[in-house]
Simulated scan of single mutants.
Amino acid sequence: MRAGDFLREAEALPLVPLNTLVPEGGVLVLAPHPDDESLGCGGLLAALAAAGRPARVVVMSDGAGSHPNSRTHPAPVLRELRRREAVEAMRALGVPPPIFLNLPDGDVPRAETPSGNAVAFENAVEAVIGAAIGLGTIAATIDLDPHKDHEATWAIAKEASRRAGLRLLGYPVWSWRHLYPAMAPIAPVEVPAPPRGMRLDVSAQMAAKRRAVMAHRSQVTRLIEDDPFGFILSPAVLSVLMRPFEVYLEEVA
């Protein structure tokens, strides 16, 4: 089936409360970049915190590639800014500060990449397993997200969950481009099967999620003024990602 149809069906998955999606234990959220955790899982993280259940976040890349032409925010400055934003976002959601793996933005390793990245992939898997101790579930961006760091994060999550015997959930961020071209058009792709999973009702967590997303000021405003072509989350993107539900898939591409 086409990816757009896959996501349209995902929007119709059962709408459930936290205890149905995650009956017990806590969740480790893997974010390819600082802000993906808030955009894709902010409601889940806030719900876990409100319920007194453990929630942790691992940010895979340093996010330093979003404004490559800025003179005021070269990579080292932007890296530190995005770390501070992520810490503030987690405070808004009520969860501990993230664990930062500090992998290069645009180069989160895949197992099948050249041998120079094999060690980095193994190290990332082991770091995720360590961060997941005491938790029952890992949530990571699905392989349908059209960004190599998001795809790599899914590959790392799959391997870590397999080794540690943890449940794995996939969450879409940029996958929604297949259904909502206003986010940025993308060529259609085929996926092997209809979606299986649930939608989490995050209506009660929307205020906290909004505060977390807005904490990533370098990504949602023109804070960095000297790179007019730098990345920014458009209103079209935010309108899709800030709905009162979040999608979590049991099996993805």
Rank of each mutant, 00 (worst) to 15 (best):
M1K: 08
A3D: 04
A3H: 03
G4Y: 05
F6G: 03
R8P: 03
R8V: 02
A10Y: 10
L13P: 03
L21F: 10
G25M: 01
V29Y: 00
D35S: 05
L39F: 00
C41D: 05
C41R: 08
A51R: 08
V58H: 10
M60P: 09
N69T: 02
S70G: 08
R83K: 15
A89G: 14
A92S: 14
L93P: 06
P104G: 07
D105Y: 02
G106H: 02
D107I: 11
T113K: 12
P114A: 10
S115N: 13
G116A: 14
V119Y: 14
E122R: 14
A124R: 01
V128A: 02
I133K: 15
I133H: 15
L135A: 11
G136H: 11
A139W: 07
D143C: 04
D145E: 13
W154I: 00
K158C: 14
A160W: 00
R162G: 04
R163Q: 14
A164P: 07
L166D: 00
V173P: 04
W174L: 11
H178D: 01
L179H: 04
A187K: 13
A187Q: 15
E190P: 01
P192Q: 06
M198Y: 15
A204E: 13
A207D: 15
R217S: 13
V220G: 00
L223R: 00
I224S: 06
P228I: 05
L233K: 01
L233Q: 06
R243E: 13
V247P: 01
E251F: 02
V252L: 12
